[in-house]
Design a protein around this nucleic acid. Structure first.
Length: 639
RNA sequence: GCCACCGUAGCUCAGAGGUAGAGCAGGGGUUUUGUAAACCUCUGGUCGGGGGUUCGAUUCCCUCCGGUGGCUCCA
């Protein structure tokens, strides 16, 4: 019996009932530079080897599709698990999904995997792939699944099965069987280039109270070239690592003596920070923010009022003085609210925008600390907007535009927007009134739409006290980093009784919008270092110009040139050491200094400098005036 | 916090049951140099801290400190 298959609008064909997607593909062999990995039939992903029984729309999924990669990686994770089971039969299977950059599989075993084992596993995978085993999908009942995996002694799988309802699909290739939704590539031989990348620990279901598992990460591609390219990208990321560059460029360090997750800013890092902070303050003043400063410590009563003492205590540093308990502030909000409440506000005062580069301390689990990205003391570029309901739309729009322009200035043109809203089925777990949530959400949506921004709606991702917009930026390597957030707060206004006097003479609750643009100065600088690979644009460079002498004879002239530049507020250095110019150039290049002004007898005679720009080699002779102009231009344009 | 791995000079790393080396950096000299490393010479380390095993430990074991990779992206 024939059935009609619509090849996603390109063609319609009649095939024998029970034909597989793979057979159709091989039969038609349509133009495609990628062979398919899976298929989409009437909207759902299926195996290429699944017999098609009804008519419908068939689409092929290749490695170029997100889903194709996932199927491919997921199949590779099965092959890896199979190899592990062959080598270490005691290992129990946990889960092995595809992830954004490859796959992993978790195992429970007494043996600890070593890097050597990874090589052995890779070798075994090669065999399995060579064997060209087919992935066979079978659908069985829950009872059958239970007896199968009891026999296999896979108790983690059993736990999963017990939570599933209805029929259960399993995939089998040779001796290996796994509980799996699928789909998979038709045969193990589809996997060509793969590599196991790392081993780490994890918990069964991410629960620290459950079994500790060992996780093996890997990645795979259809060609060796793609794998090579991917590994190259990982290498590139390693070279950009802000911890490595931070050390090399003398920006910051962490020292065990100081404590974990605490940053020591060296002069160059502190300079970079100062430039960013000065720029930040200037821009905020221009946008109608008022700068405030609140204390680093406060009595714990304040944190009881705010509620942090109840749900955030384990992250707070506390200490006692004369029987009074104090908290080192983990957030700036209560301080800003106290400033607001220091007097009665009329509707005429609103909106009020308080901004602070507020340094906060948070006690983090030691294992999560990471360079500048996750620390225990950091400076938030925090601001709180106190406004009336009718002002929220304008305020949100203002913040959104502001955040965008600042991100663009720092070289992040590519941004990703997420709107986190309430879980509609669970409305009572949130603080605040329904109408406020609705109003707030509408204002966030309106701002995003007014700016014609694509955004992802994250249902149920809002925190309990209000909806928010999160913005992520993509760096030069295409990696995503957390950036600005704009967040409503329906909790604190009530707790602190934050009000204004309206036109009607009555007190009304204010809307509080909490927002940060850089997030934390520490983390932001970490992302900047990696984004620019340490090659900061002139306006951000801790040292903008290094003047270097060819011989001692030019020291006086070098100092004169330097004294001409200093009044223009350029950050300069003079390298007058008795060293060869080659060495001075080499060091300046390595230190990523954007401008090298080389000075010898010739330059002194002509009243010029010879300019070499970072990565651009010798640009020849410049008058001091021309140099100043070029530098000014770059600083002004922030390039 | 938990799992795994790591910790040797300021930095990058080598070494090994008999108390340690290299390069760079740093000091001192020579050299006065034209766009990514001139030459000579010297200094430098309770081998992360503490405890144990041993005739002997930096090496083996325990513990603490610090770092690295991870700890649902859900069969």
């Amino acid at each position: 019996m024939k059935i009609k298959i619509d090849l996603n609008g390109t063609k319609e064909i009649d095939v024998e009932k029970g034909t597989t997607a793979l057979e159709i593909f091989t039969h038609l062999n349509p133009q495609s530079n990628r062979k398919p990995i899976a298929a989409r039939f009437n909207g759902s992903l299926i195996d290429l080897s699944l017999p098609i029984e009804d008519e419908g729309i068939l689409q092929y999924v290749t490695f170029d599709d997100e889903e194709g990669k996932f199927v491919y990686w997921h199949s590779t994770s099965h092959v890896m698990a199979q190899a592990v089971k062959r080598l270490f039969p005691d290992a129990k299977l946990a889960i092995g999904p595809a992830i954004s950059d490859g796959f992993y599989y978790d195992f429970y075993t007494k043996k600890t995997f070593s890097p050597d084992d990874m090589k052995k596993i890779e070798k075994e995978m090669k065999k399995i792939i060579k064997e060209g085993q087919s992935f066979e999908r079978t659908v069985i009942s829950k009872d059958e699944a239970i007896s199968l995996f009891t026999e296999e002694k896979e108790n983690f799988k059993l736990e999963l099965i017990n939570e599933l309802e209805g029929d259960i699909s399993i995939y089998k290739n040779a001796e290996f069987v796994d509980l799996c939704r699928g789909p998979h590539v038709p045969r193990t031989s589809y996997i060509s280039a793969y590599k196991l990348l790392s081993i780490s620990g994890s918990y069964w279901r991410g629960d620290e109270k459950r079994e500790s598992l060992q996780r093996i990460y890997g990645v795979s591609f259809e060609t060796k070239e793609e794998l090579k390219k991917h590994l190259h990208k990982l290498q590139e990321a390693k070279e950009r690592d802000h911890r490595k560059l931070g050390k090399e460029l003398g920006l910051f360090s962490t020292m065990g003596e100081a404590g974990p997750g605490l940053i020591l800013w060296h002069p160059k890092g502190a300079t970079l920070r100062r430039i960013i902070e000065d720029y930040w303050k200037d821009e905020h003043l221009k946008k109608g923010y008022e700068l405030v400063i609140t204390p680093h410590i406060a009595k714990s009563g304040l944190w009881r009022t705010s509620g942090h003492y109840d749900y955030y205590l384990e992250n707070m540093f506390t200490f006692k003085i004369n029987n009074n308990e104090y908290v080192i502030k983990p957030m700036n909000c209560p301080g800003h609210i106290l400033i607001y409440k220091s007097k009665i506000h009329s509707y005429r005062d609103l909106p009020i925008r308080y901004a602070e580069l507020g340094t906060v301390a948070r006690n983090e689990l030691s294992g999560v600390l990471h360079g500048l990205l996750r620390v225990q003391e950091f400076t938030q570029d925090d601001a709180h907007i106190f406004c009336m309901e009718e002002q929220i739309e304008d305020e949100i729009l203002g913040v959104l535009r502001f955040a965008r322009s600042i991100m663009n200035t720092f070289g992040f043109q590519n941004l990703n927007y997420e709107l986190s809203v309430r879980d509609p089925d669970n409305k009572d777990k949130y603080a605040g009134f329904d109408k406020d949530w609705e109003k707030a959400e509408a204002s966030l949506v309106k701002a995003l739409e007014a700016e014609k921004l694509d955004y992802k709606r994250m249902e149920g991702e809002a925190v309990f006290y209000g909806p928010k917009i999160d913005i992520q930026m993509y760096d030069a390597l295409g990696r995503k980093w957390q950036g600005p957030t704009i967040q409503f707060d329906f909790n604190l206004p009530g707790r602190f009784d934050v009000t204004y006097v309206g036109k009607d003479g009555n007190q009304h609750n204010v809307f509080i919008v909490h927002r940060t643009i850089l997030g934390s100065i520490e983390r932001f600088i970490g992302t900047l270092i990696e984004h620019y690979k340490g090659d900061f644009p002139v306006w951000l460079s801790p040292v903008q110009v290094r003047i270097m002498t060819i011989t001692d004879k030019s020291i006086d002239y070098a100092e004169r040139v330097n004294n001409t530049l200093i009044p223009h507020h350029f950050r300069t250095e003079v390298d007058k050491r008795n060293e060869k110019i080659d060495l001075k150039v080499r060091e300046a290049e390595k230190e990523r200094i954007p401008y090298m002004a080389i000075i010898g007898e010739r330059e002194e005679k002509e009243n010029t400098v010879s300019i070499r720009e970072r990565h651009r080699k010798n640009r020849g002779s410049f008058s001091i005036v021309d140099l100043i102009e070029e530098l000014n231009e770059k600083c002004k344009k922030k390039t």
